[in-house]
Design a protein around this nucleic acid. Structure first.
Lengths: 90, 90
DNA sequence: CATTTATATGAATTTGTATTCATATTTTGG
DNA sequence: CCAAAATATGAATACAAATTCATATAAATG
């Protein structure tokens, strides 16, 4: 029951994955663009993209030889919720 | 900037700490009550309570020989947000 | 005031997960 | 078709954080 909630939180609460989400918040991106923006290894980004996708937080589609990832719209609200709480606390 | 947000997420995204929050959602509790409800070691619960407090998610006060913890009201909304997202996804 | 009860703390260990590295897969463009 | 570009995958390693254990602290009660 609260199990899915924890899985979700664990997925978001990683620095690299959180950064990916913030990047995708600005608009859809292919893997290499994300890799460049975050200055991380390609395989690392790829691993995290899979994790985010498994949780349903992002979606992918092929575009030519690239694969483009985009945020699930619901995540936008959630990121706003997190920001709001973070600002209000302390 | 997004640093506080990550700290917050990491704090919530632990099974034991998340369970503590869910317990406190039902009402304020002393350490031993939480320990009993979750069936965890006292020192473990104590460690996690400190972590939650450091993030401002819970507050404590002494009551006789016991110490009572309670949820910060802002956390209630946030837990609802998490539940909402979790339900909507997939 | 000593003892007991309740909680906190620190260090040691364990465990889970992120990162890296090497390589596989897939598609496109020549 | 072949080679190159883009992404994915699996296993090995490195790291961070959770748990445990032993003990300290603090307050209340007889």
């Amino acid at each position: 029951m609260a199990d899915g909630q924890l899985r979700l939180l664990k997925c978001v609460a990683d620095e690299t994955r959180f950064q990916i989400l913030l990047t995708l918040k600005k608009g859809e991106r292919c893997v290499c663009d994300i890799t460049d923006e975050l200055d991380k290894e390609q395989s690392l980004v790829s691993h995290h993209l899979q994790a985010l996708r498994k949780c349903g937080l992002i979606h992918k589609r092929r575009e030519g030889k690239k694969i483009v990832y985009q945020l699930d719209p619901l995540v936008l609200e959630f990121l706003a919720d997190v920001e709001k709480l973070s600002n209000k606390l302390c």
